[in-house]
């Protein structure tokens, strides 16, 4: 779905430079929302990178914490595929399995049509996204 895949794209890039970072695991969390519970468990800090409808200009990347936003997803928690990331974080907190710090990088898509490539708008900014996120990875 074109720009919906930006998260996986960036993780692949960062994982390829893995030797630059210490004590960091790069995980392509795929689409299995509830699996985030397991990926987040027993970690000090989690950084989530995903396509996000935020009402911004296409291509804009925002850095925010889960408490700074509210979900307006109409089908949130309809199923495990539609599991809302914010709900999963809430559940992890209730279970006592939540990292101390969660940072979300949301990238506003230009296209989520059925395509195997990123849109030109997003593809042109991948280097900027990777550079900004990599700063977060240096402790």
């Amino acid at each position: 779905m074109s720009d919906e895949g930006i998260g996986g794209f960036i993780i692949e890039r960062l994982a390829g430079e893995g030797e630059k970072y210490e004590n960091i695991d790069f995980v392509d969390a795929g689409v299995g929302g509830i699996n985030l519970l397991h990926y987040m468990a027993d970690r000090r800090k989690v950084i989530l990178v995903d396509c996000a409808f935020m009402g911004r200009e296409p291509g804009t990347m925002e850095r925010f914490g889960p408490e700074e936003v509210k979900s307006v997803k109409k089908l949130a928690h309809l199923s495990l595929h539609e599991a809302d990331v914010l709900k999963i974080i809430e559940m992890a907190r209730q279970l006592g399995r939540c990292p101390e710090e969660i940072v979300i990088f949301g990238i506003e898509p230009a296209s989520v049509e059925l395509e195997q490539q990123l849109s030109e708008t997003i593809a042109a900014r991948v280097d900027d996204y990777v550079a900004a996120i990599s700063k977060e990875l240096v402790v």
């Binding site: 779905m1 919906e4 689409v31 929302g33 995903d50 396509c51 996000a52 409808f53 935020m54 009402g55 911004r56 925010f64 408490e67 700074e68 936003v69 509210k70 979900s71 307006v72 997803k73 109409k74 595929h81 539609e82 599991a83 990331v85 914010l86 979300i104 949301g106 898509p109 989520v112």
Partner: peptide
């Protein structure tokens, strides 16, 4: 069916 998921959010107190 299976579908891709993504965040759909508003910033709390934000302009949108």
């Amino acid at each position: 069916s299976c579908s891709a998921h993504m965040l759909d959010v508003q910033f709390v107190g934000g302009e949108s």
